Simulated scan of single mutants.
Amino acid sequence: MPWVFGGAVLVTVAGSLAVVGFVHPGVLVHDRFDPESVQQGVAQTLRDSYHLGTVESVSCPAEQQVVPGNRFDCQVTLGGGTKPVSVTVRDASGTYEVGYPR
């Protein structure tokens, strides 16, 4: 009889972990940015907000989580030179801030 009670507890705990971990966003499953969309957004910001003219290319890393405070660098080619540009996630809906090329 103790094994039945132990099995029921194990099933209940496993079910709870599955619900909390995979259904409730942000616990075990995180949204991730589409790198191509971020690259387009970075290029547009550099052209339109920073008025840097022609942005030759932008390369951002894949698998970046949409988590407030997450920060990563994209590589931007401007005028033949490559420079890093910081991208900082501002909120869980995917709003991010693009820094000035360093």
Rank of each mutant, 00 (worst) to 15 (best):
A43S: 08
D73P: 07
T45F: 12
S49R: 14
L46P: 03
F72K: 13
A62Y: 09
L46Y: 02
Q64W: 02
V55Y: 10
Q65I: 02
L52C: 10
Y50I: 06
N70Y: 12
S59I: 03
E63C: 00
V55K: 08
S49F: 06
V67H: 05
D73T: 14
E56Q: 14
A62F: 12
T45N: 07
V58F: 05
L46R: 01
P68C: 05
S57A: 15
G53I: 01
Q64N: 07
C60E: 10
G53Y: 01
N70S: 15
D48T: 13
Q64M: 09
F72W: 10
V67C: 06
C74Y: 03
D73N: 15
R71C: 11
S57C: 12
N70K: 15
G69F: 08
E56R: 11
C74L: 07
E56P: 11
R47G: 03
S59P: 03
Q64P: 00
F72H: 10
F72P: 11
S59M: 06
Q64K: 06
D48W: 03
V58R: 00
Y50S: 01
S57Q: 14
D48S: 14
G69H: 05
D73S: 13
D73F: 13
V66M: 04
T54F: 11
S59A: 15
C60D: 00
A62H: 08
G69T: 04
L52F: 07
C60M: 10
A62E: 12
Y50C: 02
